[in-house]
Amino acid sequence: MRFGVVVFPGSNCDYDCYYVLSQVLEVDTVFIWHGDKDLKDCDCIVLPGGFSYGDYLRAGAIARFSPVMEAVKEFAEDGGLVIGICNGFQVLTEAGILPGALLPNKGGRFICRQTYLRVENNQTPFTLLFTPGEVVKIPIAHQQGNFFIDPLYQEEIKKQIAFRYCSSQGEVDANHNPNGSWENVAGIISKEGNILGMMPHPERAAEKILGSEDGRRVFLSVIKWWEEKRWK
């Protein structure tokens, strides 16, 4: 299978994703330029972290109109696998591909630190190598990660939560919510399950030397899922 990492002007985790996929996990990976509409026969598209278009207007607001996003939207609607990490998650919500919005952090500050996440759902292509309720360590680095969802849709979205911020023991509460996210949401999947958006950076937790290898299982899950073709 082949991964494609989209490069927007201002992306800064694109090489990290490319490195983890191509060097650490040794899977076929290519870059996809934001101005291209050709997804190069990729089976999974990664929208990386960073500050696309300088976060002007709103984080992700301009990137969603780049030519590549038309292709990504079509790909996602056809059931293609898409992972949006950090700024990539913001782009997906701005584009309406995932529900909700990412507001500025409650404390008003940029937060860059290790966080613990509880895996809420392992019946997805991105989490099948985790166990439900498992606590994993994956870092965050963002200014706008405060997940907001209109009260009208909250009940519906609960089923789509993939990861929630928690303590090292797995307690999900306000004391372990770094940014004020509704229900401690750190990552959600689409209704159909083929799109994942998450604020934490799995590519920054993919090697022992980085303090955690938990993040690599997100990518390994996708690879395993693809090999088993569980979805179809």
């Binding site: 507001l103 500025p104 952090n105 409650k106 404390g107 008003g108 405060n146 907001f148 009260p151 004020g180």
Partner: peptide, 10 residues
């Protein structure tokens, strides 16, 4: 209304 505004609070 109801959307948190950290800039305003600050």
């Amino acid at each position: 209304p109801g959307v948190f505004d950290p800039q305003g609070v600050t």
